[in-house]
Design a protein around this nucleic acid. Structure first.
Lengths: 272, 272
DNA sequence: ACCCAGACTTGAACATGTTCAATCCGAGGC
DNA sequence: GCCTCGGATTGAACATGTTCAAGTCTGGGT
């Protein structure tokens, strides 16, 4: 995971690595401000940040090595050289560790995708690059990825990107898809209103891919990659076709449905 | 909830449901045979069945009264008048209780929907009836429904209707949607190949509604109902439009994608 | 130098899902 | 009537997420 983080810091929007970034942190101005959710308090000292990062780091390593269920909070604490209570001081539950990780991965993904996108203008290609980049970034964690998904599917949890309106990871991802669109040759040709909806829809599309990926048991999640290769051009085609007259009525209906029922659910105003 | 279960066992298409499939089960030919998954062994005595049912019944009541997390296995056992160990004898984990419940609800839904469908031929109407029936059947359990969903989202768990190929509840639901289609005036007009895919797709559509419903916090899940009222006609329209020439190529692509990548995942052969 | 407030840290205690060796019990064989 | 076998049942022990009252450390005020 670090290779990805190591190579970034170039584009304006990312520049994270996410670990330490916080209050008067030295570097990384645009750093994820969310890094601090799930803890009992805002970090006050430098040492605090370090401890927090150490715990997260350790947890991630153990999760990767043994899987989520098999990794006990006691093991994490022991391995990190802190007490159990201390771990809970920074992460109010075991699930929040996932959140911390998911946030970080999202930033890595955004950075990696932007790097790969440079120089490509074709919309379908750009979309495929962005999604494939996600799969690559997530690959090392496929083993315990189920936990992300369980978490995402729980409306009671503030960790869910579906229900938590201000989920920073989602905002980052949506923003990436906005760039996927605006950087493509397709953007100027589209109906402005539709263009406004698309970033969120493309994020939903990513969520579908994630669902597919989570259940994918093939080596290197090759099947998911094939699915993306095959489905992405179709998605692009549908978006493209939406410009034509025959599809006008159905597109209008779909747009209304999405504006009224889908976007509000994930925290966008339904205002036209 | 039992009134619903009592009314079924009528249609001729089902009769399959391969859960226990093996040794000749005693009674209840059309009854949910799935009731027995998650237990350590096949039921041998009558008393066994009764105890199992008692525990499930008690658990459901407590889940409804206090929610899933708040209901401890100890409480369930105590309330049912059995030991904790005994509960585990019949349900190998707390999650299997959910499964037991979900299975049952699915059968109730199928029965209720069939009753309501009688006499209606319009496809859009039939689809809306089937989906709305699900919402009605599930309504009492909305409080702890999140747990269904978490369970469904976990690929590691055999409880997931997505990954578990022989999930009997899914088979039942898919069968219901097949009837929704075949009983409609639309059926004979459709391309046979597409008609073959539709029951599964309509089930996936239901899963989307369920996702929406799980996150829905409005009273009586009114918002989900509105969403169904609004989205169902569109779904029907898309299916209807698929017959026309302009849409031929995109429909063909979509069909291929679904056949190759979606259906195999939920246990259907990709064979054309 | 002292003290204080508040961030940080600790580990034992608690709550609850899960396991398991031991026991109960009823039907069938003798 | 007694024995035996295996399903059914028990409850104490265990594993692990979580809490919390108490202790430690640090920087700033006096």
């Amino acid at each position: 995971m670090d290779d990805l983080a190591a190579t970034n810091g170039t584009n304006g929007t990312s520049g994270t690595d996410g670990t330490t970034g916080a209050a008067g942190a030295p570097e990384a101005p645009a750093a994820p401000p969310a890094e601090v959710r799930g803890s009992r308090a805002q970090p006050k000292t430098d040492k605090s940040e370090q401890t927090r990062a150490l715990i997260l780091e350790t947890a991630m390593r153990l999760f990767q090595e043994r899987g989520y269920e098999k990794t006990t909070m006691r093991a994490i604490a022991a391995e990190a050289g802190v007490s159990v209570g201390n771990a809970y001081y920074y992460f109010s539950s075991k699930e929040f560790l996932i959140q911390g990780f998911y946030d970080r991965m999202t930033y890595e993904h955004a950075a990696d995708a932007r790097r790969r996108l440079a120089g490509t203008r074709d919309f379908a290609e750009r979309l495929e690059i962005a999604v494939t980049s996600w799969i690559d970034c997530a690959e090392p964690y496929h083993e315990f990825a189920a936990q992300f998904f369980r978490t995402a599917a729980d409306p009671a949890s503030s960790l869910s990107p579906f229900s938590n309106e201000s989920h920073p990871a989602r905002a980052t991802a949506v923003e990436l898809f906005r760039e996927v669109l605006t950087g493509s040759e397709l953007a100027p040709k589209l109906d402005a209103e539709l263009a406004e909806l698309l970033p969120d829809l493309l994020w939903l599309n990513l969520m579908i891919v994630v669902l597919y990926w989570v259940f994918d048991r093939t080596p290197d999640t090759e099947r998911t990659r094939e699915y993306v290769r095959r489905s992405t051009p179709m998605v692009a085609r549908i978006i493209n076709l939406s410009r034509y007259r025959v599809f006008r009525p159905i597109v209008r209906d779909a747009k209304g449905l999405i504006q009224d029922f889908i976007l509000p659910t994930i925290g966008k105003s339904a205002a036209k």
